[in-house]
């Protein structure tokens, strides 16, 4: 067991969004969370990453034996949590590669390892960029600056590949991607999975799950997981929509 979420309640601006969520994810497992707009999917992602605007009002989250909620956002990242943002922010003047190197070294330092050798780092980064079919010119540009929507998403997975997290939360990483880009992103995620990284996929559509086969699928509605199943649940949702499941849950 890598992460265990128990009875989680989260409020934003005093409005409760997550209302008693339970979820356990084992090492190397891929879980998909699906649900209608406003069900709390992104709130869950931001909360696990430690965004200060999301108030945890009740519940616990255990991550690799630590109390996750005690850690600040950067401490969580250094402990191995990675959030692939739905809307990656642009930071002008700060090059992508500079930020990555600083982030990687912050992790290494936290793990008691020496800073990475510059030559070694470049070799490593170029390899990962090639994997993500990311042109090397993106390495030296400002973080996400002037990137297209698809480029930003690929950049997120590229960063994930470099930082090698234990647990990756991918928030609507598939939105705005064409089929070729989707395959590249999925390929990147699958490689991480082989390296025992656990993944929480947040998505609207079943499409992504054709390329990243989840071990479990959960339906989130009104701040709670109302149904869990295997990958067939996603197909069922795709065929019937959410209404049926929501109605069944209410009944």
């Amino acid at each position: 067991m890598l992460i265990k979420i128990n009875n989680l309640h989260v409020s934003v601006n005093e409005t409760e969004i997550i209302k008693g969520l339970n979820l356990t994810i084992g090492e190397g497992e891929v879980h998909a969370i699906m649900g209608p707009n406003g069900s709390g999917k992104s709130t869950l992602a931001q909360t696990l990453a430690g965004h200060p605007n999301y108030d945890v009002t009740a519940g616990t989250v255990e991550f690799a034996g630590q109390n996750l909620l005690d850690l600040a956002a950067d401490e969580r990242a250094r402990a191995g949590i990675f959030l692939g943002f739905q809307y990656p922010v642009e930071i002008s003047g700060v090059s992508n590669i500079y930020m990555l190197k600083a982030a990687l070294n912050a992790r290494r330092k936290a793990a008691g390892k020496p800073e990475i050798d510059a030559v070694e780092f470049m070799r490593f980064v170029k390899e990962k960029a090639a994997l993500m079919k990311l042109d090397q010119k993106f390495l030296t540009r400002g973080v996400n600056e002037g990137f297209s929507g698809g480029e930003k998403k690929r950049n997120e997975i590229f960063q994930m590949a470099v930082l090698e997290p234990k647990f990756a939360i991918l928030d609507e990483t598939d939105s705005g991607l064409d089929i070729d880009a989707l395959k590249v992103v999925a390929n990147g995620v699958n490689q991480q999975r082989d390296d025992k990284c656990s993944v929480l996929l947040i998505t609207h559509y079943q499409r992504l799950l054709d390329y990243i086969q989840p071990d479990f699928v959960h339906v989130l509605a009104n701040g709670q997981i109302i149904r869990s199943g295997d990958k067939d649940l996603a197909l069922e949702l795709e065929a019937n929509g959410y209404d049926e499941i929501l109605a069944a849950a209410k009944a």
Partner: peptide
């Protein structure tokens, strides 16, 4: 922007390092 700081922190940088990095970029 708060979301710039959060982004850097999510990648593992301390708040102070994130600020220095963004200011130097500026």
């Amino acid at each position: 922007a708060d979301d710039q700081l959060f982004y850097c922190q999510q990648r593992g940088l301390s708040e102070e390092d994130a600020v220095n990095m963004i200011v130097n970029g500026f």
